[in-house]
Design a binder for these strands. Structure first.
Length: 869
RNA sequence: GCCCGGAUGGCGGAAUUGGUAGACGCGUCAGACUCAAAAUCUGGUAUUCGCAAGGAUGUGCAGGUUCGAUUCCUGUUCCGGGCACCA
């Protein structure tokens, strides 16, 4: 009896499906375990072998936990809204809903063959109205909430209204944009005035702001979607632009997002990425009075108040509001010119060039501690959006300040003695202060609190915490996203009533941008007639809460019943790539905290443990073709009958090649080849599926492309060897490997185990199909412990020996440990060793083999089921 | 520039807490079975000296701590990832 994996796998997959084996209930006496994958964006390209890596790992873990007696929630769904589907629609004229549906069915077909234990009855799709109804609903909750910094939580805006009506502003919200007012004043405000104030505190708000605008995509992008001045998707240039935009006030959660990071089981690298993104810094704000007008103050932010006596100049951002007041008549022209110059430069240019530019304002401020006159400069290296948009420059301690001082010949004060060598700034905190008035002789780090106390005592400053993180841009001028449940009337945003949700995305005929930077929905008269918001939500809206919907996917009353979310609680294990470190993961953490604050769920962090699977890179193969110069007809011939060199010859000199290949050329191209010169050797991507290891399958290559049909190959030792390189896996590089082909050839169980055997899940590694035979051999060996091709059944019900039990128990222990700590590659090795050992013992005892099948089940579920008697 | 991670045979990788480096698999070599091939099985396979027994060297590089270091410390090179005028 043979191991016919194709029949076995089909049989069990059908049975799992028809018997609803993996459907999970929300009521169980078993302990729960929630194992989640980052759901995929269903792209048109389909799956390559890199995609299922994380799914296989999570499936192993889910099956393992099930065997350990847990009620396991292991769902899958689709993150279906987003830019690529819309771009695709624009290019091919297929409606995103249609292409998305097709892509989803492709994905599903591919996934099903690998034998996952997903509970498909809980599938979610963010682009379906039954799902985005609740995305819109949560948006409304955000819109209708404010952040109470005293209670350190979000609260309904109705509560704030009551407070405003009874006590006025009264410091209830610490937001600079909101002016002080009394209860009586509040009541006297017009509706518009009141609503404008409320808009300044809503957790989802609409405002004017500088945004990342991508002209090619016709939309704004969030900070994490911009990479070095280019869009993450498509790589188009991105510029800063002032636009009306929706935002999430994620900055209110900055501190909590940072703090609760501590208790999460994320990798240190991940924690660090997130905390760098949040970018908390402790410092102080400080006032410097104008020399000419002591009533006016310039407020700066610094993290080093201890260096106050080393301040040699001030720098304000080019957008700073005090520039007109600071500019002296004699410098006005230069200042105007400089500001015009800065405006003319794109973000991209600023980042690429990084040159030192600046301009003196002509005026001075006074150091509050020693009265020293300090010149005020303008420079683009100071950012308007951070701190106060103005800094005190200490060139002996800060590299940028130092370079600036050098460049403009500003004298440098040394307050750190020999720690400053005059050639480089030194940002140490461990120097003893000199030239520093009342701080002389003090250690710098000790001086920080001393100065802070003095600032407060004199009323000229205070300690201050700043964050790099900005509020998240939450609107896109695109079609394929959730519509905002907002109606505009007289410049006031009114939320739709909950009972009118979902606000369905209408069909459109064209996806072109609307007027004035608005989205395609602005072209629809039926939409604009109702004054509906024409922007749509960004890709990360649905993914910020989808994990909650899996818990209660068919509920039409609420997004997720409290009963369901109380039962399932946090995701016990979340698997996905690092690329979402500062996007999705941060947003979903914020939404979870918000929903917790408002009492809709009972936990404030979504994911207990996060594992980042590494990327599987493509291993590209190249063929090296010789390029020639000669008569036109010869070049034509060279195209029809190309000559390829094996990898070892590619780097020979052209002289050498011309000499050694003469006869080859003559043979291939005939007499005319005498006049031909080889001028270069070019490398062309070859489909990896035509290559075995590094050796090219020549006949397959010839039939791959018609133009290679008559190709000639210059071999080494009778083989044509390809060049290799590790690159990102992509269709255009012909280095993708389709899991379907491997499943057909070796079976899903082999494929699953091989993906795990390749190396640690967290590690990035190039794909190499070569070793899959070894894993396949293992499964066949396992099969032979039960069945012999000729003799048939060989397993017996005899009692096992001591030695056999020993082998089994060693395996069970190792598998438990390895599966728990996510070391699946060593677990697969252990299984191989076990089967080898049992083979050596000629062990065919049922009681041993059955136990072996149990520990094998998570890794190779089909064969385990089949052999289970 | 700053921060984080990594470097082990021909290849992917193992060594969980400082204790026999190279598990397991690939590849390769030899053998068995076969008319032959495939499949399967058995054995060898870090480098080096040696007919052999055996010896020497060996975890990017240079040092250090230790009875003992792939593992800890210092410095350094290369590779990968993240951030990048955040005062």
């Amino acid at each position: 009896m043979e191991y016919s994996f194709n029949d076995i796998e089909r049989k069990w997959q059908e049975r799992w499906k028809s018997d609803h084996v993996y459907q999970v209930s929300n009521t169980s006496t078993k302990p729960k375990c929630y194992v989640l994958d980052m759901f995929p964006y269903p792209s048109g390209a389909g799956l390559h072998v890199g995609h299922p890596l994380g799914y296989i790992a999570s499936d192993i873990f889910a099956r393992y936990k099930r065997l350990k007696g847990f009620n396991v929630l292991h769902p899958m769904g689709y993150d279906a809204f987003g830019l690529p589907a819309e771009q695709y629609a624009i290019e091919r004229g297929i409606h995103p809903a249609v292409s998305t549906k097709q892509n989803i069915s492709n994905f599903r077909e591919q996934l099903d063959r690998i034998g996952f234990s997903f509970d498909w009855s809980r599938q979610v799709n963010t682009a379906e109205p039954s799902f985005y109804k609740w995305t819109q609903w949560i948006f409304l909750q955000l819109f209708n909430s404010w952040y109470d910094r005293n209670a350190n939580q979000a609260r309904p805006i109705t509560e704030l209204l009551t407070l405003f009506e009874s006590q006025g502003y009264n410091g209830l919200v610490t937001n600079r944009q909101v002016p002080d007012f009394t209860a009586a004043e509040w009541k006297s405000f017009s509706e518009k005035q009141q609503q404008d104030i409320l808009m300044e505190v809503r957790l989802a708000y609409c405002g004017f702001g500088e945004v990342n605008w991508c002209e090619a995509l016709g939309t704004v992008l969030a900070n994490d979607e911009v990479i070095n001045g280019f869009s993450e998707r498509g790589g188009h240039p991105v510029i800063k632009k002032k636009l009306r935009q929706w935002y999430l006030r994620i900055t209110e959660y900055a501190d909590r997002l940072l703090e609760s990071l501590q208790k999460l089981s994320f990798s240190d690298a991940m924690k660090e990425m997130q905390s760098n993104w949040i970018g908390k810094s402790f410092g102080a704000e400080m006032d410097f009075a104008f020399e000419k007008d002591p009533g006016k103050k310039l407020r700066v932010y610094t993290t080093r108040p201890d260096t106050i006596f080393g301040v040699d100049f001030m720098v304000v951002a080019p957008e700073h509001e005090m520039i007109p007041a600071l500019t002296s008549p004699s410098e006005k022209k230069a200042v105007d010119q400089y500001i015009a110059y800065v405006k003319s430069r794109s973000e991209r240019e600023r980042m690429a060039e990084k040159k030192i530019t600046g301009c003196f304002t002509g005026s001075y401020v006074l150091n509050p501690f020693n009265g020293r006159k300090i010149p005020v400069w303008i420079s683009e290296y100071v950012l308007a959006g951070y701190g106060t948009g103005a800094i005190m420059a200490v060139p002996c301690g800060d590299e940028r300040d130092f370079k600036f001082a050098r460049f403009f010949n500003i004298p440098i004060t040394n307050i750190i003695g020999q720690h400053f060598n005059g050639e480089d700034a030194n940002s140490t905190k461990d120097a003893i202060l000199e030239n520093s008035g009342f701080l002389n002789g003090m250690l710098m780090r000790d001086a920080i609190p001393v100065v802070n106390a003095k600032l407060e005592e004199l009323g000229i400053g205070n300690p201050r915490v700043n964050y790099k993180m900005r509020d998240a841009a939450f609107s896109r001028q695109r079609y394929w996203g959730e519509p905002f449940p907002i109606v505009w009337k007289n410049g006031i945003a009114y939320p739709l009533d909950e009972k009118d949700l979902p606000l369905e995305l209408p069909k459109v005929d064209s996806y072109k941008a609307g007027p004035d930077g608005e989205g395609p929905l602005a072209n629809l008269s039926e939409w604009t007639a109702k004054h509906l918001e024409t922007n749509t939500m960004p890709g990360y809206a649905g993914s910020s809460w989808y994990f909650l919907r899996y818990m209660d996917p068919h509920n039409s009353e609420v997004f997720c019943s409290r009963k369901a979310s109380d039962y399932w609680g946090q995701v016990d294990l979340y698997i996905g790539g690092t690329e979402h470190a500062v996007g999705h993961l941060l947003y979903s953490r914020m939404w979870t905290k918000f929903l917790f604050d408002r009492g809709f769920i009972g936990f404030d962090e979504p994911y207990k443990r996060l594992v980042n699977q590494g990327m599987i890179q493509g291993s590209s193969r190249f063929a090296h073709r010789i390029e020639i110069s000669g008569a036109d007809e010869m070049e034509m011939l060279a195209k029809q009958k190309p000559i390829f060199l094996s990898a070892g010859m590619k780097n020979r000199s052209l002289d050498e090649l011309n000499a050694s290949l003469k006869s080859v050329l003559l043979e291939q191209w005939g007499k005319g080849a005498e006049r031909v010169q080889i001028i270069s050797v070019s490398s062309l991507h070859v489909d990896v599926n035509l290559v075995n290891g590094a050796e090219l399958d020549i006949s397959a290559f010839r039939s791959w492309r018609p133009e290679y049909g008559q190709a000639h190959f210059v071999m080494e030792n009778g083989k044509y060897i390809c060049g290799t390189e590790v690159e990102k896996m992509s269709k255009s590089k012909f280095n993708t490997v389709n899991p379907n082909e491997l499943v057909d050839k070796y079976g899903a169980d082999t494929f699953r185990m091989y993906e795990m055997f390749l190396g640690p899940v967290e590690q990035s590694k190039p794909w190499d199909t070569k070793g899959i035979e070894g894993v396949h051999r293992f499964l066949r060996k396992l099969w032979r412990l039960f069945f012999d091709e000729i003799k048939g059944k060989v397993w017996t019900a005899d009692a096992a020996t001591e030695a056999e039990w020993k082998v089994l128990h060693k395996a069970i222990k190792k598998l438990d440990e390895d599966t728990d700590r996510f070391s699946f590659n060593t677990a697969v090795s252990a299984l191989m060793i076990t089967v080898n050992e049992l083979g050596e013992l000629k062990s065919h005892k049922k009681e041993i083999l059955e136990n072996l099948l149990i520990i094998l089940t998570p890794y190779a579920p089909h064969i385990s089921e089949e052999l289970w008697h």
